[in-house]
């Protein structure tokens, strides 16, 4: 479904991604972790072309992200993305946030789009808030709306870029619950996250990055049981200490 091949990226002289290669198959849940500045967010943003890369290629559902001929907006409309800071559109009601891209990008009728949005809002447990504006919701609620907004486009895969990092601790679980449910339904997911509990519960594979390179790419049990690289061992021992 998503195949990342030898991707490298530079900001000027500074190399942020070094020869990254990995694969996410259909229905697979892959967690990307690593210390801050290791390039995880940059890598996931390359997958839907939000960040350009200078060498290598990424193929999403048979389409090359790096090719200048690719209709990126069209490709993006098929891949859902959830951001650290939610990025709901603050001037639009929750209903309109959910309907906007369905109408403008997929050409759905307004009532159809709203109906679909409401159904997804119900699924994330927020149907009572349809008429509110993002600023009137808590962070956890906003993030659940953001997930619903991405799902409304019927994506073939979902990308999560640190979806719980900006949340108060008590709101993290409500977002993770939605993500776990999605994983169980068979959604293809690539998640940049530090939530190792989530990774343990639903991930098929864990990718560990450091200094722009993929250091470890292993199935979950192997990663948590006996990480091969020292860097990953050190990272795990630090974050799993408590």
């Amino acid at each position: 479904m998503i195949s990342i091949k030898n991707v490298s990226k530079w900001y000027g002289d500074f190399q942020v991604l070094t020869d990254c290669t990995t694969e996410v198959s259909k229905g697979e849940v892959v967690v990307v972790c690593g210390p801050s500045g290791s390039g995880k967010s940059t890598l996931i943003k390359c997958v839907n072309g939000l960040e350009p890369f200078q060498s290598g290629d990424i193929i999403v559902d048979g389409i090359s992200v790096g090719s200048p001929k690719t209709d990126l907006p069209k490709l993006r409309s098929r891949v859902g993305m959830v951001f650290q800071h939610f990025e709901l559109f603050p001037h639009l009601s929750i209903t309109d946030n959910l309907a906007l891209a369905q109408i403008k990008v997929l050409g759905r009728k307004e009532d159809e789009a709203k109906k679909k949005g409401l159904a997804l809002l119900d699924r994330v447990g927020l149907s009572a808030h349809a008429a509110k504006f993002p600023g009137q919701l808590s962070g956890g609620q906003q993030q659940r709306v953001a997930i619903a907004r991405a799902l409304a486009m019927d994506p073939i895969a979902m990308l999560f870029d640190e979806p719980t990092s900006a949340l108060d601790p008590e709101m993290i679980n409500e977002v993770l619950d939605v993500m776990v449910q999605l994983a169980h339904e068979g959604m293809t997911m690539m998640c940049v996250t530090h939530e190792m509990g989530f990774a343990r519960k639903v991930a098929n594979r864990v990718i560990f990055m450091d200094k722009g390179a993929i250091v470890e790419d292993a199935n979950k049990d192997e990663f948590f049981g006996s990480p091969r690289s020292e860097r990953a061992q050190a990272f795990l021992s630090k974050i799993l200490q408590h």
């Binding site: 409309s77 559109f89 001037h91 906007l100 891209a101 403008k104 486009m153």
Partner: peptide
């Protein structure tokens, strides 16, 4: 925030739509 543009891109909106639906309504306010 730059994230607003990214979120709009990620939904598949094109540049004119991003300005019309997302950026200008907020900027004018």
């Amino acid at each position: 925030p730059k994230g607003q543009t990214n979120a709009a891109y990620a939904l598949g909106l094109r540049i004119p739509q991003i300005y019309k639906e997302v950026l200008l309504p907020q900027a004018f306010r």
